[in-house]
């Protein structure tokens, strides 16, 4: 149990860094995708502690499949010779912004957690709020379909941790799985278009 708790803590602390820093700072789409895959895996791991395994694993797998959809779309663009534009601002600026947001979150996570279900606990609240913040920040920095979909996936992953503590119904899981897969598929669909969108 001690090991499980430690692993959860490591996963929970690492999630916002993976989901927030990596997509915002990385230039190569494969690093960004790796960040999403690890963040979705981490959320799946945390969900396993709240939801029945079948439901948690379904959402975990849906996150990974959606990431595969996105990867296929972006690799298509890459093969067409369209590089992934960086998000707005320089790398140092983005790194500082995300770091600043994480520091703010660390200072105020207790107060923010009061808005979340009481059963969540500080560790899961940190992970959920960190992912939500990371998703919103990255979303504000970009309008490229790949980056926008990544941000939305990170944001939804954070929220799914919150819902897990409020509801354990099969229909909610099915709909969340459906939305995650559909979002990945639509992000990929936009990337398979004939011309890459210019601009950040």
């Amino acid at each position: 149990m001690v090991f499980a708790w430690n692993a959860s803590l490591v996963v929970a602390l690492g999630l916002p860094l993976l989901g927030g820093l990596l997509p915002a700072v990385a230039r190569d789409w494969r690093w960004i995708l790796l960040g999403v895959v690890l963040a979705e895996g981490g959320v799946g791991w945390l969900l396993l502690q709240v939801w029945p395994p079948a439901m948690a694993l379904s959402l975990w797998m849906a996150g990974w499949i959606a990431a595969v959809f996105l990867g296929l779309g972006q690799s298509h663009q890459w093969r067409q010779g369209a590089p992934l534009p960086t998000a707005w601002g320089g790398r140092l600026f983005r790194f500082t912004l995300v770091g600043f947001a994480l520091v703010l979150l660390a200072l105020h996570v207790g107060r923010a957690a009061a808005w979340l279900p009481e059963t969540m606990g500080m560790v899961q609240a940190w992970a959920a709020l960190g992912l939500i913040l990371a998703g919103v920040l990255h979303l504000a920095m970009t309008q490229h379909p790949f980056r926008v979909t990544v941000s939305l996936m990170v944001l939804l992953a954070g929220f799914s941790l919150v819902y897990a503590h409020l509801e354990q119904s099969l229909l909610l899981t099915v709909l969340l799985v459906g939305v995650t897969l559909f979002l990945g598929a639509m992000g990929s669909y936009l990337l398979f278009g004939p011309l890459p969108e210019a601009g950040p």
Binding site: I132, Q143, P145, V148, T149, L190, L191, P194, E197
Partner: peptide
């Protein structure tokens, strides 16, 4: 499928999805 993604569509996707959670 044969048209590029426009900024309007990407913003529509982003903002509507932002409201849902």
């Amino acid at each position: 499928a044969d048209e590029p993604a426009t900024p309007g569509v990407v913003r529509y996707l982003a903002w509507m999805t932002l409201g849902m959670p």
